[in-house]
Write a protein that binds this DNA or RNA. Structure first.
Length: 212
DNA sequence: GTGCGGATGAACT
DNA sequence: GTTCATCCGCACT
């Protein structure tokens, strides 16, 4: 190995205190998992920000610390994986400093490495956007499981999940901000444009309420 | 200990 | 457009 252009994101990236900004910066970054000897990765194309201090949609609002949410209060650079609707494992990245409950939900990736493994995990035969579009789908494709991958480090040398910067930058005009979905209970916070995705990317999820 | 509902996806009509 | 699978976390008792 002569050069390492696939550099892992460092802890200092995750400990930034602007979770909405981080959610946008994460677009174009590479999410990689190395699970059961299978390396799979994809470029992040869709994210959502959540904040425990004032965001009613966040599990940890208002600074609510429970067995489930306590990991969100940790220093940035760890995972938060939880089960939704009893079926779907949703993968979040914890950000900010210790004591603040901020997280970015990864909602869509564009597959890069280990596509065969992903197809197998999803029990699909064809390579279609269904493979990884949507938070539940991409977690399954990458082999992310709540039992094994909740509250693990994304920055340690031997971690099985990490993020890479492959020098892909997304121009601001290609980032679409829209309302988050599935959080109608969050009242006025449901209107916040904290969902970000890459314009014209077919690997973004097909969730309802896509306000263009 | 018990009951209820959810940051979804897939398969329907 | 609608329905439903399916189980943990949380708020009670």
């Amino acid at each position: 190995m002569v050069k390492n252009k696939h550099s892992r994101l460092k802890k200092s990236f995750y400990t930034q205190t602007d979770v909405v900004g981080i959610a946008q910066e994460l677009l174009g970054k590479i999410l990689v998992t190395h699970i059961n000897g299978e390396l799979t990765s994809g470029m992040i194309v869709e994210t959502e920000a959540y904040r425990g201090s004032d965001d009613k949609a966040c599990h940890a609002y208002p600074y609510k610390k429970t067995d489930r949410t306590k990991i969100m209060f940790a220093e940035g650079g760890v995972s938060y994986v939880y089960l939704c609707y009893g079926i779907h494992h949703l993968f979040n990245i914890i950000t900010s400093v210790e004591g603040e409950a901020e997280a970015v939900l990864i909602r869509g990736i564009e597959p890069i490495d280990g596509i065969d493994s992903m197809l197998e995990r999803r029990n699909l035969k064809e390579f279609t956007p269904r493979l990884t579009a949507g938070p539940g789908s991409l977690s399954q494709a990458l082999g992310i499981n709540r039992k094994w991958h909740n509250a693990i480090s994304l920055v340690e040398e031997n971690s099985v999940i990490w993020l890479e910067d492959r020098n892909i930058s997304i121009p601001k005009e290609n980032i679409i901000a829209s309302r988050r979905v599935g959080i109608d209970f969050a009242e006025e916070c449901a209107l916040w444009n904290w969902r970000f995705r890459i314009k014209n990317n077919k690997w973004t999820s097909k969730g309802k309420g896509l306000g263009e």
